[in-house]
């Protein structure tokens, strides 16, 4: 495998004096998928906030295609194909479904997926395209958040807890969509509390513990590692 498409080197993120992320490093090869798992408050979301440009890291470097993008504003990263599906979905509830999608496309208009094509992938959004996005159910809003990221034909998708708060059937649907995204060779970084499910989908896993990486390895091996199983996966 060649140069990683995304690499994070010695990243530290602080909220005031509280250090949420300490010296975290990992990289993802093009088309690969990394899962960041760990307990609530372990710093997983803060890593994604720094990689997507929503937060300035205190230390460390974020590289896309080897280019240092640590100081880039968020919109420039979106333009370069690095897109976040944020925790809690962050859809714009007063805008229509179609307007949310149009916003997702506007930084990469040349590459954007035609709306019609996207609606075939997400039929439930097609029916609701002229409704305010706030009127959608939680699962539909999550689909919209993913569709809004995918419409820009991103190269790297960062997903923050996409299954949080969803009914089991919707969780299956979300992971079904993640499988489709992987099949289209898009690079994925997935943050999940549902660690077992995330590691089953990913190639590589990193376990975060109080802001630092405690275990790393091929996802299939982490799933069998007794320490990881005991602490994070529990008995099935």
């Amino acid at each position: 495998m060649s140069e990683p498409i995304l690499s994070v080197e010695s990243l530290s993120v602080s909220y005031g004096r509280v250090e949420a992320v300490r010296d975290v490093s990992f990289s993802v090869p093009e088309g690969g998928m990394v899962a960041l798992v760990g307990a609530n408050g372990a710093g997983k979301s803060s890593v994604l906030a720094a990689v997507s440009g929503l937060m300035r890291p205190g230390k460390g470097t974020v590289r896309l295609d080897g280019r240092d993008i640590t100081r880039w504003p968020a919109h420039r990263r979106v333009g370069a194909g690095l897109v976040l599906v944020p925790e809690g979905r962050q859809i714009l509830g007063t805008l229509t479904v179609a307007e949310n999608l149009a916003l997702g496309a506007h930084r990469r208009r040349a590459q954007a997926v035609p709306a019609g094509e996207l609606y075939e992938l997400f039929p439930v959004l097609a029916e609701r395209r002229d409704l305010p996005a706030g009127a959608l159910s939680g699962g539909e809003q999550q689909m919209l958040a993913i569709a809004r990221a995918m419409i820009s034909r991103p190269r790297v998708v960062l997903m923050d807890e996409p299954s949080m708060g969803l009914a089991p059937k919707m969780v299956d649907e979300v992971f079904g969509v993640i499988d489709k995204i992987r099949a289209s060779d898009v690079t994925v970084v997935l943050v999940e509390q549902n660690a077992r499910r995330a590691l089953r989908t990913a190639d590589t896993g990193h376990v975060l513990e109080t802001g630092a990486i405690a275990h790393s390895g091929p996802a299939s091996e982490l799933l069998k590692d007794p320490k990881v199983v005991q602490a994070y996966l529990g008995v099935e």
């Binding site: 919109h75 859809i91 916003l103 506007h106 820009s152």
Partner: peptide, 8 residues
């Protein structure tokens, strides 16, 4: 924040 996420 949501606006920044989508690249505004």
């Amino acid at each position: 924040t949501a606006a920044r996420v989508v690249g505004v």
